[in-house]
């Protein structure tokens, strides 16, 4: 079936417009971060700065501050820990639910599905009360277990779907060879579910990396702040916002996300299409 050239051209044209609209805000962010703070209210406003105005002084300022590294490092610790814990815990949960019959299995899985429907922020008040009881307010430990708990339902749901599809013969063959359940789990189930685990891990990374409401509630000290609260803190001074700094810091904090996205692009799609999880 041959399609008309004009139809194909029309598709590309529309898609290009769409992509421009998608990327425009980010380009504007970067172009704003490259001009001096005083030029932000210039008239007429410009999409791109005048060439002679282009400066990296906002980046220099952000990078020269220790705070940025601390915030960046905090975000890395929190995101990586969340990803690792969630991957291990959800795989175990998913494996058992997918492959074994035990009392309460249906109830457990039903509960996991229900918690997927309740947005995490709804629970912010009782979870805060819990954080206070556990004395983890103003600590990174006040973030990691909570993020892990938030992402476990989705992760379990997705990985379970994958583990159900492992052919019975493979597992039976291993059992006949005398393998115990740990061996089957670590040697067979996990390696065969790698695509699912990888794709949920990417989403979990993004979730933890960008989370704002909970971190803003639990964390006080500058030295424990993650990047989103640090960025929002720049903006907080309502009478005087230094947009150049805000956007320079934002651009820097997007780098790891874009790297992860580009490196693991393949898994993104696998994850989305296998169980269809929203990032």
């Amino acid at each position: 079936m041959k399609e008309k050239k004009s139809v194909i051209f029309f598709r590309y044209a529309l898609l290009t417009i769409g992509v421009i609209l998608s990327c425009l805000p980010m380009i504007y962010m970067i172009s704003t971060s490259l001009r001096p703070n005083g030029a932000l209210y210039e008239y007429p406003p410009r999409f791109f700065p005048k060439l002679q105005d282009v400066t990296v002084e906002n980046y220099q300022y952000i990078i020269s501050q220790n705070k940025f590294y601390i915030n960046f490092f905090n975000s890395v610790i929190v995101s990586v820990s969340t990803v690792a814990l969630a991957a291990i815990i959800s795989s175990g949960l998913a494996f058992v639910i997918a492959r074994f019959q035990f009392p309460g299995r249906k109830v457990l899985f039903g509960f996991i599905i229900i918690t997927m429907i309740i947005p995490g922020t709804t629970l912010i008040v009782p979870q805060f009360e819990l954080a206070v009881k556990l004395k983890v307010v103003n600590k990174l430990w006040g973030l990691i277990p909570f993020y892990t708990a938030w992402v476990i339902p989705f992760s379990t749901f997705m990985i379970k779907g994958f583990m159900e599809n492992i052919p019975d013969e493979i597992i039976e063959a291993a059992t006949i060879d005398g393998a115990d359940i740990f061996t089957v789990f670590f040697r067979i189930a996990i390696p065969l579910s790698t695509p699912a685990i990888a794709s949920v891990s990417i989403f979990n990374f993004l979730t933890a990396w960008e989370e704002y409401p909970w971190a803003n509630t639990v964390i006080n000290d500058n030295a424990i702040r993650t990047l989103p609260i640090a960025i929002a803190g720049f903006f907080g001074q309502h009478q005087f916002t230094q947009w150049g700094y805000v956007f320079a810091m934002s651009a820097l904090s997007l780098i790891p996300v874009i790297l992860v996205f580009i490196l693991f692009q393949k898994y993104f799609v696998t994850g989305l299409t296998a169980g269809s999880v929203k990032g």
């Binding site: 996991i112 819990l130 476990i152 339902p153 740990f182």
Partner: peptide, 21 residues
């Protein structure tokens, strides 16, 4: 071993999700 695989998930889930609900 099954119980051990289930335990961390159940613990986190009960403690940080079910209890707050």
């Amino acid at each position: 071993q099954i119980f051990l695989l289930l335990l961390p998930g159940l613990a986190v889930f009960c403690f940080f999700t079910v209890y707050p609900i």
